[in-house]
Design a binder for these strands. Sequence first.
DNA 1: GAAACTAACTTCGATTCTGAACTAAGTTAG
DNA 2: CTAACTTAGTTCAGAATCGAAGTTAGTTTC
Lengths: 399, 399
Amino acid sequence: MGYKPSYAKTVKRTGPRDIALTEYSSSILSMIASGRARSRADLARTLNLAPSTITIKVNELMEAGLISESGSGSATGGRRPTLLELVPDAGFILAADLGAHHLWVGRLNLSGNLLVSEIRTIDINDGPEVVLPQAAAMMRALSDPAVDPPLRGVGMSLPGPVNFALGALDSPSRMRGWHEFKVRNWLAEEFGTLAVVDNDANMMALGEHTLRQRESPDSKVRQNTLFLKAGAAIGCGLIIDGQVYRGSTGAAGDIAHVQIPAAGDAPCSCGNRGCLETVASGSAIIRDLAAVGIDAADVNDIVRQVNNGDPHTTTRVRTAGRILGQTLSIVVNFVNPDVVVLGGGLSQLEPYVAAVRSQLYESCHPLATKNIVIEASLAGSQAGLLGAGQLCLRTVLAS
Amino acid sequence: MGYKPSYAKTVKRTGPRDIALTEYSSSILSMIASGRARSRADLARTLNLAPSTITIKVNELMEAGLISESGSGSATGGRRPTLLELVPDAGFILAADLGAHHLWVGRLNLSGNLLVSEIRTIDINDGPEVVLPQAAAMMRALSDPAVDPPLRGVGMSLPGPVNFALGALDSPSRMRGWHEFKVRNWLAEEFGTLAVVDNDANMMALGEHTLRQRESPDSKVRQNTLFLKAGAAIGCGLIIDGQVYRGSTGAAGDIAHVQIPAAGDAPCSCGNRGCLETVASGSAIIRDLAAVGIDAADVNDIVRQVNNGDPHTTTRVRTAGRILGQTLSIVVNFVNPDVVVLGGGLSQLEPYVAAVRSQLYESCHPLATKNIVIEASLAGSQAGLLGAGQLCLRTVLAS
DNA sequence: GAAACTAACTTCGATTCTGAACTAAGTTAG
DNA sequence: CTAACTTAGTTCAGAATCGAAGTTAGTTTC
């Protein structure tokens, strides 16, 4: 047997177009897909390669039919760049966003654009054996294998703590039957393709980050994003240097189950008492409103009531925002991100966003809030689906 | 003029040995210096280069007299690796650790080993115009230019928030005259060489991390270190992926000025009220002890009293540890490091370390503490000096 | 104590990537 | 409008890196 080089850099791509691409080719694809580079000159700068090298690689990729030129960008004092894009028809990605009560699936092209999507209600407690086949069926329904370009990968966002290396949930609370069920492997086998799964907050963070990266041209400097998902539950995802940060055991980003004084010893879904989530989450608001006779079935009801000007609900939402802001300020001080994005259902409410923002400005060190941007999510409810697609796309293109 | 490539990879080194070294040469030096790689095979794996390339580069560097072989390591089922080390005589580094009342300087060889050091008391409030020349004189006294190999760089640890890009302190509290004084430039000019400055907690974190990296052979997986400095003041440094993490504005790692309930509205040196530092720091302990008639001039006195079994002081120290642990748990949950190191004067006290540790285990999510190591600093009081030297060394070797 | 295996390191022809010079296509200032 | 400047992208000879096969030197197994 031979020598099996672990440093191997040359990648053979087999598939409809059988062409040998070198190491940097996949980086180029990733850069274009994620919006981190849009022209040859961009690529040279971002990847720290000679322009001449980029010319060669880009030509190869164009001949292989994987990327194409798409007009020219705006000039900045010189010749205008020729923009590059992934050829959308070179393949597609399926993504799914799984929640406690919803299942949202979508199809994306290789540029990471969501083409079609579909949603239905489910009960996560039916377990993976019931839910995953439902998801697979819905995803299949979004594509016609006879017509569509080949499926390149599947990404799924899961509503609990994910062991990324294992591709499974790790002791999720209130998700019967999901503990250590290997979701990634199941998907990979079911679709016969590459699959990725991650925690919903991480996925949303990545989706939002990618979107912002594309929207703004000066995005080169905004590479550290803290994404806070405030819906029925609270979750947090962190992007450092454009990548999802997962920490040592994959638990990074946990903020919901911090003990805070304002919570007293209210019991939490995690089994502990006095967690932030028992005060600042959508569920907590619903519980407190019920106690004073105001009926809200879910976060959407809260949103509706606040938009209708219900003073009681609005006050409660504002309080939740302020308390969340206090805890969040500790993390913002420590991580010092350039963007804090608020997502999840509650982020639709201006009073909530305003409360978090003002609390952050009040509690953080001035150096930490110097150039910070604190905003509601641009991706909105699509964040999870976009992120799942994006993570899958990055994995596909990097392999 | 001509084309000035920003992607330039070939580096000409001028100096006593005028030799052209390529891009990877500096990475190789960095890897060896920081202990991230110790043999050719290590280098190939760490840098993702072909073994054949490493052979060529290592030979070049050996001919240039910058590295040498230093015996062989232990085998792991095959031929044993030939260990490599930086030739200590190829140059040296001067490092300084500046505190509110002390100035500690040292000389390190290119392997990052501290050879000699000297300490004296100073008053930081005399301002940079007085203190820096003192530091420079002490550093000069540690080396004899007629005998010593050439000085390659100077590193200094500063006791306040540092704007790393500027090389200066940014609005430090209680440091008259230091705001935006360009310490790095001053040092670079004074010594006619490369200089780096950073915040003391960051420097200590790097020093400790490097030491641990060298001590343990399985260190490849322990790349995320959270270092907490608990002395008169409280500071925190974060190593992510073996590098100092500074965040977007360089403020990352701030934890001392988080508002906590236990602090009430005690005034803090930062101008705010109710900060963690007003309860859990050495100064806070001294202040509280004074209020009940126990006299302690500095952290050393606290250490002495606890070691002598003074029950009052010991209880107070334990309380400080517990309160610190509560706030720290939020950060540990979020960042999910593999090592938490306690440094600074208070870390010498087992009751303090034990209190922090048990509070962390109690307050953190089980996933975050699964494989975590929580320990007192191995580098002890040398951490800052070692880190300043290490950061300087890395910068020198990377340039 | 061979035989089989594993890991470290080297050699050398083949390939990839670079760097300098050049072309192309814009912006800015007078 | 033109001259000076800036940025984007290409060409090609030469330098840097790779990968396969081989050598060296250990460990493990029976």
